[in-house]
Design a protein around this nucleic acid. Sequence first.
DNA 1: ATATGTGAAAGTTTTCACAGCA
DNA 2: TGCTGTGAAAACTTTCACATAT
Lengths: 198, 198
Amino acid sequence: MAVYVQALEAMLQENMNVVSSEGLAAACNVNSSQIRKDLAYFGEFGVRGVGYYIQDLLAAMREYLGINREWNCALVGVGNLGRALLRHKQLARKGFLIVAAFDCDPFKIGEVVAGHEIFCTRRLKERKQDLGIEIGMIATPPERAQRATNHLIEAGVKGIINFAPAIVHVPDDTVIDYVDFSQNLITLAFQLSSHPSS
Amino acid sequence: MAVYVQALEAMLQENMNVVSSEGLAAACNVNSSQIRKDLAYFGEFGVRGVGYYIQDLLAAMREYLGINREWNCALVGVGNLGRALLRHKQLARKGFLIVAAFDCDPFKIGEVVAGHEIFCTRRLKERKQDLGIEIGMIATPPERAQRATNHLIEAGVKGIINFAPAIVHVPDDTVIDYVDFSQNLITLAFQLSSHPSS
DNA sequence: ATATGTGAAAGTTTTCACAGCA
DNA sequence: TGCTGTGAAAACTTTCACATAT
């Protein structure tokens, strides 16, 4: 679903107005009836004989997905990946603002990266209140991922995205999502090994 | 499937020897018969009444997934994310070695990052031969992702992992895989918006 | 004419339940 | 007794095909 938003944004940038399910399907490499099913799910948005008005469709999808507003995020773990996230303009442009950075390394605490002072992870709770943090991003080494998660949970953060290659456990009322490069590379390696030609 | 490898590696680190489908299921947050089905797929590896021997299982899975060897990778796009990837030790530890870095910005060409000289993207083809590159990693801005892809394809790279938030098109004999942070954040935002409690 | 919305068919994945082996 | 391997059932997803609207 989020893929559609991406494709539609690209189309809008190229001054397109209307798109057919077939057109969007080609851009996303999926089947056209898939698209129609998905889009029909939140109201009859298409115009028969014409297609979908990109502007309206995007607005409806953004609302549906909960990205018609900004989300305040806290970064835990300011290594190379954490720094890359802090400097990543794409995230801010999409409404995901990193408003605080934390690390447990005493040498890093107090350092300023991309305009953000790094705080001790213990101060998460106090700063969560002040800054209205809703999402936590974990970019620690894998062995510290669970501890970072616990700090976030204790602070009352209900949504966590984990960039560390480790499975972490959270209570039922907390949402956890994973981004794991090595995982994706393994998938790729598998595909390359198994189907060498064709 | 790659998740199991991760969980099993963590267990091995904690000096475990044997694991039951139930135990692995708990660690991965999945159903136990799922695990049995998946593991049974490549031979009868479990011992009834006992469980699975982690060492043997890992070896079998690594072979099956094609990660019982090293893969040479080329990075295209040396921005913040690219730098983070170059310095990411986890990837090398898992056998994914970045052996060359490319960028089309004349100011970056010749610079050395984490022991790697940055080359002009045009020289991809020539260096692919020398270094035995099998996987391309795209970490350019989204609008340059397709061009980077084309360079890789022209050089004969058959496996690509795209970190840029853009859909790219490749011929049928080339495998493409996506890693998109904003996509994951959107998913998270959606889950947080729709199920605020429970 | 053209392209959506949708029921019904086909395909895939997940879960259950239990026979069979250590 | 304890845990795997697996057929059969249930749940879910994808695709097709066509009636329906502009």
